Computed example of a mutant assay.
Amino acid sequence: MTAQPATTTQTTDGETQGSLADILVSQGALDASRAQQVKTIEIQTGKTQEEIVKDKNLVPEAALVRAKAALYNIAYIDLAKTPASPEALAILAQEVAERFRVFPISADKPSKQLVLAMADPLDLTAIEFVEQKTGLQVMPRAAEPSKIDDFISTRYVGSLAQEVTEALKEVSPGEEKVKALERTKTGFIREEKVAEIVRHMLEFA
Rank of each mutant, 00 (worst) to 15 (best):
K56W: 14
Q49L: 02
P110Q: 05
A88M: 06
G135P: 10
D123V: 10
D123F: 00
M139Y: 00
P145H: 08
L79G: 06
K169R: 04
A67D: 02
L92N: 12
G46D: 12
S172T: 12
D123G: 15
L160F: 14
Q113K: 15
I152D: 04
I91M: 14
I52G: 10
E50Q: 14
Q137L: 13
L116G: 01
I43E: 04
V53P: 02
L124Q: 13
E50K: 06
R66H: 11
T154K: 04
A63H: 03
S85P: 09
L89H: 03
P60R: 06
A117H: 05
L114H: 04
A107C: 15
E98G: 01
P140M: 13
A67S: 07
L160V: 11
A88F: 01
P60N: 01
A80K: 00
A84H: 02
I127N: 13
V164R: 00
P83V: 07
Q113V: 14
Q94S: 04
F103Y: 01
V65R: 05
S85C: 07
Q137A: 10
L181E: 09
P140L: 10
A126H: 02
I52F: 14
A75H: 06
Q94K: 07
Q137H: 12
L92G: 03
E166R: 03
L92A: 12
N73G: 11
P173I: 15
I91L: 15
D108P: 15
P60V: 01
T134D: 10
E61L: 04
P86I: 00
E128D: 10
T40C: 05
Q132P: 11
A67V: 08
A180G: 14
T48R: 03
P86K: 05
V178D: 10
D120H: 13
V138D: 12
I105P: 03
G174E: 13
A143E: 04
E182P: 06
S159H: 01
L58F: 12
A167C: 12
E176G: 13
S85T: 01
D108K: 11
G46T: 06
R183V: 08
E163H: 10
A70Q: 07
L122I: 15
Q94C: 06
V59E: 03
G46C: 05
I74Q: 05
A126I: 02
L136I: 09
L116K: 10
R66V: 00
A88S: 05
R183N: 08
I148A: 07
A84D: 07
T154Y: 00
K68C: 09
L64I: 12
A107L: 11
T134S: 12
L136R: 08
T48W: 08
E170M: 08
A142S: 15
E131G: 13
V178G: 14
I152L: 00
T125G: 06
A142E: 09
I77T: 00
D108S: 15
E176Q: 14
R99C: 08
E175W: 15
V115L: 06
F129L: 14
E42P: 06
